[in-house]
């Protein structure tokens, strides 16, 4: 069994420093890894990233993250990534990592993802350059996730995104904004590999549980949804063929 703790959308800045830390100190007793589902900061500044590093660094368990849309706001992504990596936090963007846990080798592939909407109600690669650019961003992001997932050699495979791969976990959000909250292409990428669990954030008013069309369990771990410092999942550790 592999124990995964996860949370997203913590939106750290100096005013939040220390709020998560008491619960995080308990992590080594209850989890093998902490996965962060993006929107670590308010605006994606280097100083906010230092707050993230201070709050989520040195926890005694590996920390793996993707970035979210807020982490891109100030166009300081390279600086943010460097601060996080200097604190020992692994940042994924169309990439993956394998962690040796007591219960087996955990593979995590991650990407921020993007909007676009869900099957039958989605944007298409057609029309104005701005629309084509929007949809191509979604397509490329999902393709990178799928490639990263299929490339990992591990016992248990987890997909980590900021944007949602299914509409199920958006229940509670206005239907009109679903295309800005995720894309079906992410779900398709997750279903292209033997993924055991998909974790995402971004949808603050969404709901916790869903499943991809291919049967992969999806959990929305946005902090406003889970209403605790992090959620913990125990996965069976079935071998991947």
């Amino acid at each position: 069994m592999i124990r995964i703790a996860a949370v997203g959308d913590v939106h750290l800045d100096a005013d939040v420093l220390g709020r998560f830390r008491p619960a995080l100190e308990e992590l080594p007793d209850c989890a093998d890894v902490l996965l962060l589902a993006g929107d670590l900061t308010r605006h994606g500044t280097e100083s906010e990233a230092r707050c993230v590093a201070e709050e989520f660094g040195g926890l005694g368990v590996p920390v793996v993250t993707v970035l979210g849309n807020h982490d891109h706001q100030c166009d300081q992504v390279p600086q943010v990534v460097k601060v996080l990596e200097d604190a020992g936090i692994t940042v994924l963007e169309g990439t993956g990592t394998v962690l040796d846990c007591p219960g087996g080798r955990l593979g995590v592939a991650g990407v921020k993802g993007f909007g676009g909407g869900f099957a039958g109600r989605c944007a298409s690669d057609f029309g104005e350059p701005e629309m084509k650019s929007f949809v191509r961003t979604s397509n490329e992001s999902a393709a990178a996730l799928g490639e990263a997932l299929r490339g990992l050699d591990c016992d248990l495979l987890v997909a980590l995104t900021h944007y949602a791969p299914v509409p199920d976990t958006l229940a509670g959000e206005p239907l009109e904004i679903y295309p800005f909250l995720g894309s079906y292409q992410l779900g398709q990428a997750i279903d292209s590999a033997p993924t055991a669990l998909a974790l995402h954030g971004h949808a603050h008013a969404g709901s916790e549980r869903g499943v991809t069309p291919g049967g992969v369990r999806v959990r929305n771990v946005a902090h406003p949804v889970i209403k605790q410092a992090y959620s913990v999942f125990h996965l069976g550790g079935d071998q991947i063929d």
Partner: peptide, 14 residues
């Protein structure tokens, strides 16, 4: 203000 307590339960995903 969103609570930040440690979870008291885990979700088992066999």
């Amino acid at each position: 203000v969103i609570r930040t307590q440690a979870p008291v339960q885990v979700e088992e995903l066999p």
